[in-house]
Amino acid sequence: MSAHTIKVYRDILERDADWARRTRELAAPHRVTMINLIGSPGCGKTRLLEAAAVALKQEYRFSVLEGDVETTHDAERLAALGVPVAQLLTGGGCHLSAQMVHLAFKELPLDALDLVVVENVGNLMCPACFDIGEDAKIALLSVTEGEDKPVKYPLLFQQAKAVIITKTDLLPHLIFDLERCLRYIREVNADVPVFALSASTGEGLDAWLAWLRNFRAVTRPA
């Protein structure tokens, strides 16, 4: 049995890349900044958004695209704070697709927004693989997860424009070596800004908010 080979060389995620490009083309003229929060289930993504919502309310007009496998609990928590939020349910899918995000994004009142925050499905691996048209992926890691996640899931931490270590108020109760965790982050992304914070106590929150303000100013200059 003989066979011949047809060379192809075609991007497997070309369709996703196309949706992501369309989202960026829509965001730019409206001067909207979009960030994509990625971290394990329960690492504190929604809690951080709640804290940020309260702190930034006077400054930015923002909206949240809330990705979940099931349930609208997270969306309800944010809506309770007066944050306009659209729920994206993946029905089992482990990440938000660029297409899902685009379809929700284009329905937002973009002229009346500065910032769109996507809370991706809780997962350290899958969402890191996909470009959804964001300006920055932000990696979250809670202190209850162990120091070594950055080297176990290098793609996320390598892609991230900022890394947030969450729930630092729990440090006194845990065996978690913050210095070692920082070293692991540096091993995959030497220059990435890292913020250790607690959304519960507010400690460290301001430094991250300052980064966010600066990121917004740099990516969408007035």
Partner: peptide
């Protein structure tokens, strides 16, 4: 980070 279809092998 590559992810692409390289080739298809077709029976003659």
């Amino acid at each position: 980070r590559e992810l692409y279809l390289e080739s298809l092998e077709i029976e003659d």
